[in-house]
Design a protein around this nucleic acid. Structure first.
Length: 199
DNA sequence: ATTAGGATCTTCT
DNA sequence: GAAGATCCTAATG
């Protein structure tokens, strides 16, 4: 299950850089039966990787500027995945800082799904990468599991559908875990609301 | 410390 | 055409 990924270490060798992150926060998306999952509405070009075999990276673009990464967990055709929400950079600190110049402290380098993806260099090019390939650019290692008593769970962040599902898991008292934000509707930008056909 | 709002574009309806 | 598994900065207490 998703919580088993906590404490495991993801090593990325993308772009001549090598960064390792120990996962401290994840979210589970239960395939086609989960209204909050990208795979809920069936297979599309974007979600094709989710419908494939487990152990592959599924990356997607959100909000017009960020990349986020999942690990496909369900059996072939199941379309379940785990969103990697946050982690502690345990290797390649210099490279991670270079990619995340905005982060003022090291514990913020991979705090939040888009931040984590940026720190590891994930984007369209890493979609579908096999984590078990011998020569893969990204690999998953056992790492060090958290104390079972330190594992917490709660609602998923920023998700409108199935908001009551307690499918977010994190390691208690870890500074790299992102702050919880319930889903809120975004206001439309002023310009987008223009009336009339203009010009 | 906390909150509110803007940026920006792919995907599916 | 509308909404989205977010991050960052600026303004306010």
């Amino acid at each position: 299950m998703a919580a088993d990924l906590l404490g495991r270490v993801l090593v990325s060798g993308v772009g001549e850089r090598r960064v390792a992150v120990r996962l401290t926060e994840v979210e589970a998306y239960a395939g086609r039966a989960d209204p909050a999952s990208h795979s809920y509405r069936g297979r599309t070009p974007r979600t094709a990787v989710m419908f494939g075999p487990p152990g592959h990276l599924y990356t997607y673009f959100v909000y017009g500027m960020h990349w986020c990464a999942n690990i496909v967990t369900g059996a072939d055709g199941d379309a379940s995945a785990v969103l990697l929400r946050a982690g502690e950079v345990v290797g390649g600190l210099e490279d991670a800082r270079a990619r995340r110049a905005r982060a003022s402290r090291d514990h913020e380098l991979a705090r939040g799904p888009a931040a984590l993806a940026t720190a590891l260099g994930f984007d369209a090019g890493t979609n579908g990468v096999d984590l078990c390939a011998a020569d893969g650019t990204v690999a998953l290692y056992p790492g060090s599991p958290p104390r079972p008593a330190a594992v917490r769970n709660g609602p998923r962040v920023g998700v409108a559908a199935a908001a009551d599902a307690q499918q977010r898991f994190w390691i208690a008292d870890d500074p790299t875990v992102s702050a919880f934000r319930a889903w809120t509707p975004r206001r439309r930008s002023a310009g987008a609301g223009r009336v009339g056909g203009g010009s």
